[in-house]
Design a protein around this nucleic acid. Structure first.
Length: 215
DNA sequence: GACCAGGCACATC
DNA sequence: GATGTGCATGGT
């Protein structure tokens, strides 16, 4: 089928239009994981404020987050929105980290990808997109991250229905593209970039590098 | 003031 | 399995 050509073609169009995105914007894998939780249904500019707060308070490390109260954590991450829920989710992640891995992310990375994924999914507040973001951007595993922008673009091009499952979208990319961490890294980041610019009200409208009107 | 943003869990049918 | 709802801030 022509999906292979289409998907890699989309990638090249986006890449030549926007260039390298240099994701994930974080200094450490741990920061990626916390950022992945904070960015759930939230603009990154708000997440950045929360992360800056955590850094300023010297809280952006497993030990500090293990000992901080959930109330205090809520206040620090407030700008990211949904702060009460996200504080619980971060705590659940930290508990997992200390219950099974001595608070050390490096130990997790050595395991098989699907094994890590199911462990992440068992943590309260970590769903498929958050788990896959951590797998790809923190652990550098070749897992394609599907987000709302991805679904909009793919469904607008009538490759899949918008209501298709997460797995169906992910399988599309896994099957049609080579399993390549750098490719998946850049591709997802480019979807987010093009989504921010063009997908708000009129996805793939005039001027968008993936516009339906230009071939 | 309305609308949106790099989701997820939970209730209900 | 599908659908609806609560969660919340800050930018446009």
């Amino acid at each position: 089928m022509s999906c292979k050509a289409s998907l890699i073609n989309f990638f090249h169009k986006l890449y030549s239009f926007y260039g390298e995105q240099k994701w994930w914007p974080a200094d450490t894998p741990f920061e990626v994981a916390i950022g992945a939780i904070l960015t759930q249904n939230t603009n990154w500019s708000n997440v950045k404020k929360a992360i800056d707060n955590l850094k300023r308070e010297e809280l952006l490390n497993p030990q500090s987050l293990k000992h901080i109260s959930i109330e205090r954590l809520s206040e620090v991450i407030k700008p990211s929105g949904y702060y009460r829920i996200k504080a619980k989710r971060i705590k659940a992640f930290i508990d997992f980290l200390f219950d099974y891995y001595y608070g050390n992310l490096k130990i997790i990375k050595e395991q098989e990808t699907n094994n890590i994924r199911s462990q992440l999914l068992s943590i309260h507040g970590i769903g498929q997109e958050t788990a896959d973001s951590i797998l790809l951007y923190a652990f550098e595993k070749p897992v394609f991250v599907v987000d709302s922008y991805t679904k909009r673009v793919i469904s607008r091009h009538k490759i899949l229905n918008y209501n298709s499952s997460y797995k169906e979208f992910q399988d599309l990319f896994h099957n049609e593209l080579k399993q390549d961490v750098q490719l998946y890294n850049e591709y997802h980041a480019l979807f987010v970039r093009v989504g921010k610019d063009y997908c708000k009200t009129k996805p793939l409208c005039d001027g968008c590098p993936l516009s339906l009107d230009r071939k």
